[in-house]
């Protein structure tokens, strides 16, 4: 993945230095590239007039949200939908406590959820491997008996 340049981001921000996010636009752009802030924190972007810029920004930062960032790959072809990942994931235990006791994930708050007989990663950004935490957690990979989850 080509490295994102803060200037690319800065040019698309409102550049008003309103500081609603607590910093200047340039600082925001830099921290966005470092994944220390999220795009939603720039509230003026949702105002009319910024629609196109917002769309371009979302496109630019999209690669940050892909599996490459956490190194998790879930092979839906192999997955049996057993839900081991849902139950072992420590983030799921916090988001939907019943999952830690073996219940199926039913809300949209968990990292993993079994839909239509297959486990899906529905909130990758919540994964502990995801910046800024970047914890080297591998419980889902270890718990997957089908061998459908791979972390590299």
């Amino acid at each position: 993945m080509a490295k994102l340049n803060p200037m690319q981001i800065y040019k698309l921000l409102p550049r008003t230095n309103c500081k609603k996010c607590g910093m200047t636009c340039m600082a925001f752009a830099t921290r966005l590239v470092l994944r220390e802030v999220s795009l939603e924190e720039c509230t003026p972007l949702t105002e009319p007039g910024y629609k196109e810029q917002l769309a371009t920004l979302q496109e630019l930062i999209a690669p940050l949200l892909t599996a490459e960032e956490t190194g998790i790959k879930l092979d839906e072809e192999i997955c049996s939908g057993c839900g081991n990942c849902v139950v072992v994931c420590p983030v799921d235990a916090k988001s939907e406590p019943d999952t830690a006791y073996g219940k199926a994930a039913r809300t949209s708050e968990t990292v993993f959820r079994v839909e239509n007989g297959i486990a899906l990663i529905i909130n990758l950004s919540k994964c502990r491997r995801f910046p800024p935490d970047r914890v080297n957690c591998r419980v889902c990979e270890q718990g997957c008996s089908a061998g459908a989850i791979e972390i590299w």
Binding site: S80, G81, K103, A104, R106, V114, G117
Partner: peptide, 25 residues
């Protein structure tokens, strides 16, 4: 007999939450 699961059936479409592959099948 998993009792913590849910399904939605719409004419030719089926969606489920929590069902394993066998159950969804």
């Amino acid at each position: 007999f998993c009792d913590d699961v849910c399904v939605k059936v719409q004419k030719t479409e089926l969606s489920s939450l929590g069902l394993c592959g066998l159950g969804h099948g």
